Measured scan of single mutants.
Amino acid sequence: EVYKVKIKIERVLPNGEKVEEEITIEVEGMSEEELLALARELAAEPGVRIKEIEIEKLPP
Rank of each mutant, 00 (worst) to 15 (best):
R11S: 02
V5D: 00
I7S: 00
I50E: 00
R49N: 14
S31G: 14
I25T: 02
S31W: 10
V5N: 00
E54P: 01
G29E: 04
N15L: 02
K51H: 04
E41P: 01
A43D: 06
K4T: 06
K18V: 09
E56V: 12
K51V: 15
E33D: 12
I55T: 02
R40S: 10
V27T: 11
P14I: 08
Y3D: 09
K57F: 15
E54N: 15
E56I: 15
E32H: 13
V48D: 02
L36Y: 14
P60K: 06
M30S: 05
K4C: 03
E34Y: 15
E1A: 11
S31N: 06
L58R: 13
A44Y: 13
E26V: 11
E56N: 06
E17T: 15
L42R: 07
K18L: 12
L58K: 11
A37Q: 13
R40D: 04
N15W: 10
E34C: 04
P14L: 11
V12Q: 13
I25Y: 03
V48N: 03
E17H: 14
L13I: 03
E41G: 12
L35E: 01
E10R: 02
E28H: 05
E56F: 03
K57N: 05
A43C: 05
R40W: 12
K57I: 12
E56T: 14
P60A: 08
K8R: 10
E33R: 07
E32D: 11
V5L: 13
G16L: 03
E10T: 05
V48F: 07
P46N: 14
R40A: 08
K6F: 07
E21H: 10
E32G: 06
Y3H: 14
I25D: 00
V5T: 01
K4Y: 08
E1W: 15
V5C: 03
E26R: 09
V12S: 15
E56R: 13
K6T: 07
L13V: 02
I23C: 04
L42T: 08
I25P: 00
V12L: 10
V5G: 02
E21C: 11
V5R: 00
K4D: 01
N15A: 02
V2C: 04
E32T: 13
P14S: 07
P14H: 13
R40M: 15
M30T: 03
R49E: 13
I9H: 00
A37S: 07
L58V: 07
R40L: 15
V5F: 03
P60G: 11
L36S: 07
V19L: 06
I9F: 08
Y3A: 15
E52D: 15
G29T: 06
G29K: 11
N15D: 11
I55W: 06
G16F: 02
E10Q: 07
E56D: 06
V12D: 07
E33V: 13
E10W: 04
I23D: 00
M30K: 07
L35F: 11
I53T: 01
L42H: 13
V48T: 09
T24N: 05
E26W: 10
K51L: 13
K18C: 08
V27F: 10
E26S: 15
K57M: 15
E26Y: 10
E17N: 10
A39Q: 04
E45S: 15
V19P: 01
L13H: 06
I53W: 03
A44S: 10
E22N: 07
I25F: 11
A43S: 13
E10M: 06
E22P: 01
E33C: 07
E22R: 05
Y3Q: 11
K18M: 15
E54T: 14
K6V: 08
E54K: 10
E52G: 09
E54G: 08
R40F: 06
R40H: 09
P46T: 12
L35S: 09
G29V: 03
L42E: 02
G16E: 01
R49S: 05
V12G: 03
K57Y: 12
K57E: 04
V12Y: 09
E10S: 06
P60M: 01
V48M: 09
R49I: 12
P60C: 04
I23E: 01
E1S: 12
L58H: 13
K51Q: 05
E34R: 07
V48C: 03
R40I: 14
R40N: 05
S31A: 04
E1T: 11
I53E: 00
A37E: 06
Y3M: 10
S31Q: 10
I50F: 03
V19H: 08
E20S: 07
V12A: 10
A43V: 15
E28A: 11
I55N: 01
A37C: 11
E56A: 14
K8I: 12
I53D: 00
V48Q: 05
L35H: 03
E17V: 12
L38I: 13
K8M: 03
I55V: 06
A39Y: 12
I23T: 02
K4L: 08
I7T: 00
A37P: 03
L38K: 09
A43K: 04
Y3S: 15
L38W: 09
E26D: 06
K18E: 04
I9R: 02
E1Q: 09
N15S: 12
K8W: 14
R49L: 09
I50N: 00
E34L: 13
K57D: 03
A39D: 00
P59I: 15
K18Q: 04
Y3L: 13
E17Q: 14
E52S: 08
M30L: 06
L36A: 08
K51M: 15
E34Q: 15
L35Q: 02
E20P: 03
E41A: 15
E54A: 11
E17C: 11
A37R: 11
K18F: 08
A37V: 14
R49H: 14
E45M: 15
I7E: 00
K57C: 04
V48R: 03
I7N: 00
E41T: 15
E17W: 05
L13A: 06
I23W: 10
L38P: 01
P14T: 07
L36K: 07
L36R: 13
I23A: 01
K18P: 06
E32L: 08
E22F: 06
I55K: 03
L58I: 15
P60N: 06
E32Q: 09
E28S: 08
E52L: 10
E52H: 14
S31R: 08
V27W: 09
T24I: 11
E33A: 10
I50Y: 01
E1H: 10
I25K: 03
G16Q: 02
G29I: 04
K18G: 05
R49F: 04
E21D: 10
M30G: 10
R49P: 01
G29Q: 03
V12K: 09
L35Y: 05
E54Y: 15
Y3T: 14
P46H: 15
V19G: 02
P46R: 15
L38M: 10
I53P: 00
E33P: 05
E34V: 14
I23P: 00
I50L: 07
M30Y: 15
V19T: 08
A39I: 09
I55G: 01
L42G: 02
V2W: 11
I23H: 06
V2N: 15
E32V: 15
L42M: 14
V27G: 07
P14G: 09
I9A: 01
E41L: 15
P46G: 09
G47R: 04
I55P: 01
L13N: 05
P14Q: 05
P14F: 03
E10Y: 05
I55E: 01
A44F: 12
R11V: 03
E10K: 01
K51G: 02
A37G: 14
I25E: 01
V19K: 09
V27R: 05
I53Y: 02
E33N: 13
T24W: 05
K6P: 00
I7M: 06
E34T: 12
M30N: 11
E10L: 03
K6D: 01
E22L: 09
L36D: 06
E33T: 13
S31V: 08
E32K: 08
V5S: 00
E17A: 10
V2L: 12
E41V: 14
E26C: 04
E28G: 10
G29H: 10
T24A: 08
R49D: 06
I55C: 03
E34A: 13
E21P: 01
R49Y: 06
I7F: 04
K4E: 05
P46K: 10
G47P: 01
A39C: 07
E56H: 15
L58G: 11
E1M: 11
R49K: 11
S31P: 14
K6E: 02
E41I: 13
V5E: 00
P46D: 05
K8G: 01
N15Q: 02
P46M: 08
L13P: 01
I50V: 07
V5H: 00
M30V: 06
E28W: 06
K6A: 04
